[in-house]
Design a binder for these strands. Structure first.
Lengths: 213, 213
DNA sequence: CAGTACTGACTGACCAGTCAGTAACTAGGC
DNA sequence: GCCTAGTTACTGACTGGTCAGTCAGTACTG
């Protein structure tokens, strides 16, 4: 179990390399990231990277897939949730998304994709079908139900879903792009609570009904 | 005036190079952008780039500054606008910001900065003080006034300002990152109108007052 | 013909990707 | 237990391609 130097751990390597690569890619971007840095961060030499991944691009794809898959599992559970009111379901769903974004690498991943998807359109498309559509459809369904039941005022569900998601997306990206420079960003919990409050209030036909905070 | 080939136009070059560079940087990112491509797009050879800019990084900074400055001027005018109600002022201010983002290169610039600011923290800081603070403060002032006059419900002005801005930021970034891949994004005008409607409704103490669309 | 805007072949650095060599483990014979 | 031959995870010096940055030379201008 103790491996001071040059130890052999075939099973652990891919995971270690992927998480090291995620860090470096998020920090530098794909083009500026050096595989020597990734290897060093994972405690191996560059040659080892090529034992487990075909190329830099293959490593990049593996990083995206690994991160996204762990996130999809977390999101999967919430879809089947049949809670009381629409605003209640929306609150719970958004809370889970927010948590997933911040506690899994999905947030970092999103920032990485925003920066790089122009150079990797296939990955952008894959991300769209695997993650974005799923979350979008779930949000739309909740809002559409709320509108149908008369709890929400008659907003177009697809646009409203985008609007609900936007502030959280913005915070995730902004934090990761400028967080180091702009120290006075609001704390995540407060941001989440206040934002959801304004959004739900904006959707409700009878204001004050779905309030919580 | 007509310059078929190898003509001399000292005054026009910097501007041409900057706008060519903006395109290439936005498309590829700083690290992956090649100066040969920038030069070709501007209709000159790579050597010419170095007659007007010290280095690739200097060109990058020039791109940012040129784009941001043209935007600041456009925003400057709106601040001194003393229009009727707070929701009216907010609508007008956001409309100008939205227009500036889409009609000047500021939107492209923002996407570029999101992708690269980790590698250029000074530029991130500069952008923060020159653009972000200004817009943020203007938005906060409008919302704070609306709250003080009782038109808006008592939300924290700083957080509310971030919330108002987020959807537009998100749309700008999303469009530029994934626009080519996801064809069914809402058209900008409709997105703007619907979003502002939900947001203003969410802020108002007496719903329906500040409506327009 | 003097001055200058511009060119494009060249250099040197950097880095993705390779591969001959090494160290760590394993199985089997004693 | 100890040696040994075979296997495999890992290393790091090396290669080849790419590209930022240079500069001697060219073509246009007045």
């Amino acid at each position: 179990m103790k491996c001071p130097f040059r130890c052999r751990r075939k099973d652990a390597r891919p995971g270690e390399l992927i998480s090291a690569a995620l860090e470096v890619f998020v920090e530098k971007g794909f083009a500026a990231a050096r595989l020597d840095d990734v290897a060093a961060k994972a405690g191996v030499s560059k040659g080892t990277v090529y034992l487990y991944f075909e190329s830099k691009e293959a490593l990049f794809k593996a990083v995206i897939e690994a991160g996204a898959m762990s996130a999809v599992e977390a999101l999967e559970q919430v879809a089947a949730d049949g809670g009381s009111s629409a605003s209640e379901r929306l609150r719970r769903f958004m809370a889970t998304c927010w948590q997933t974004m911040n506690e899994t690498p999905l947030g970092d991943l999103l920032k990485l994709l925003v920066a790089e998807s122009q150079n990797f359109p296939e990955i952008g498309r894959w991300f769209d079908t695997t993650i974005v559509r799923r979350v979008q459809n779930a949000t739309r369904a909740i809002i559409a139900a709320g509108v149908a039941e008369g709890e929400f005022r008659p907003v177009p569900a697809d646009t409203a879903a985008d609007i609900v998601f936007a502030p959280f997306f913005a915070h995730i990206i902004w934090q990761r792009a400028f967080g180091a420079v702009m120290i006075d960003l609001p704390p995540p919990e407060r941001f989440f609570a206040d934002t959801l409050d304004v959004l739900v209030h904006g959707l409700l036909r009878v204001p004050g009904t779905g309030a919580q905070s």
